[in-house]
Structure formats: structure tokens, C-alpha cells
Simulated scan of single mutants.
Amino acid sequence: MSSAYLLVSHGSRDPRPEIAMQHLAGLVNHKLQKSISPPKSENIVGIAYLEMSSKPLHEQITKFAQSALAGGCNRLKIIPLFLLPGVHVMTDIPTEIALAQQTFGQDIIIDLEPHLGSKPGLEKLLTKQMATIKTQAWILLAHGSRRPGSQQPVETMAANLGAVSAYWATSGSLESRVKELIAAGKREIAILPYFLFTGGITDAIAQSVEELKLHFPTVTFQLAQPLGASAELADLIWELILYT
């Protein structure tokens, strides 16, 4: 059964995440085409957005599915590029997929794959990023959610990485974690943004780190980059596609 793939992210008004998504889709498409004999002339990897798009997600899925069907694919796999299993992954995206599936009946099967954050290899990728910075303490900074249980994956990831967790939009703020580490005697602190791409929030995080440098001049702060549209991330998505 021939498949096409649609990478779905949250969406943003900032143009940088869309550029990164396009680049990432190109990397994944290249890897897939190399595995197909003969390669297809058209892209079999597309991108779509849950929010901040001119069309709802189910219409974006329908449009790409029509293209995939015309290209000889009879299965479309939706890959949520979300780091956490929140309401978007658990409820919103499945609802949109169901709406799109109604358009096609059995002509093309639309499957929902596991979200990116469920992939064990993500931890290895973050560890590789951390290895480039020498510091006494790490903070894993995620967006945060008030949904019950939503922060547990962040807590687990932080513990596995030897970091402490912090949240941008909920309690357990970056500044509070910094103060706790300073009280514990740490004078070198690095922050790892648990986000896919550079955008408005990561810009705000960078500004917050500059303010922390002014407030705590005896402490050295370093800010790592978000995951980004790297070849390593494309490899992780490729593995997710292969083994699901």
C-alpha cells in the first residue's frame, strides 16, 4: 500500500516556523524518495497547520489527500509535530481527520500516527544539543499547560536529561527555577527551550534570559536553540514513519 505523509504543526503568525516546516518536509521527502523504487515525481510529504491557517485543518488534509490519491497513494499518514500529548493531539487533530475521511470513504485511508514527542529518540537529540554547552545546571523550559497531567512528560524528560523543568505559561516559571538553582549554589545555568522552532516565544525567552543576566550578574547564563529543522530531526521523523 503506497503512502503519503502530512506533517501537522500548531501554526504561527510568525513566518519562521512555516519556513522551518517547509525545510523539514523537504528533508523527510528526500529520505522517503530514496527508499522508493522508482522515486515518485511529486512530493509525498506535505505540511499543514492546526491553527493560524486560512483553511481549517480538515480542508488542508483533504487537499493534500486528493493530490496523494492522484499520485497513486491510497494511504495518508498524519504525523503531529507536537512535543506533548495535549488537547490538540488527543482531541482536535483526530476530529479534523475524521471530517476529512468522510470526503473519501475508502478511496484513501487517513491514519493518525504517534506525535513526535512520543518518540524515544527525541531524548537523544536533546542530549546531543546539551553536549555542546558546558554548564553546572540545565533548565528544560516548556510552554506549559493547565490540562491535568499534561506536564508529566516534561517532568520525565527533564529528569532523564538531568535537568530541572520550567514553564513559560504556567507556574514553575523560568525565574523561579533560576532562583532555586542559585540558592543551591549554581553559578552556571543553561536553558534548553523545549520547542520545535524559533519564533515569537523563543524570542521572548531570549529577552527574558538577557533580563536574568542583569538581575544576577554573578551568574553565567547560556541559552540553547530549539530543535529546529535539522537533518537529525528529519531522521527522527523518518524512524517514526518506518516503525509505525
Rank of each mutant, 00 (worst) to 15 (best):
G149A: 07
L125G: 11
A183E: 14
E96K: 11
W138T: 08
L69F: 07
L27P: 05
G46L: 06
I109Q: 07
M157Y: 11
G200N: 12
H30L: 10
Q151N: 15
G71T: 00
A190H: 06
P193A: 09
S2I: 03
E180G: 03
R75C: 06
F64I: 12
H143W: 08
L174A: 03
Q136V: 02
A190M: 06
L57D: 02
I109A: 06
K128S: 13
E210T: 08
R147K: 10
D14Q: 04
A65V: 04
D111Y: 06
Y167P: 00
L32D: 07
L196V: 03
D107N: 12
K34W: 11
A184S: 15
S12N: 00
S165H: 12
G144E: 01
L236G: 04
T202A: 04
Q102K: 14
H88A: 06
S12G: 00
S171C: 04
M21F: 14
A163F: 10
T135D: 09
F195Y: 13
R177V: 04
Q101M: 03
L212W: 00
G144N: 10
L50P: 10
A231P: 01
P39R: 01
T170P: 08
A166P: 02
C73I: 02
Q207A: 11
E180K: 10
R146Y: 06
T62L: 04
P80M: 11
T127R: 14
G46K: 06
D107Y: 05
L69M: 07
S54T: 13
S67D: 10
S145G: 00
P217A: 05
S145D: 01
S173L: 02
H215S: 14
K40N: 06
H88R: 05
E113W: 09
P15M: 12
S176L: 13
L116E: 00
N160V: 00
Q60D: 15
Q106T: 11
A137T: 03
Q101I: 00
K55F: 07
L6N: 07
Y243P: 02
V178H: 09
I19Q: 14
P94F: 14
L227P: 01
F82S: 13
S2Y: 11
K179C: 06
R177D: 02
A65H: 12
P85M: 10
L81N: 08
A158T: 04
G46T: 08
L140A: 09
W138D: 09
E175L: 13
L227Y: 02
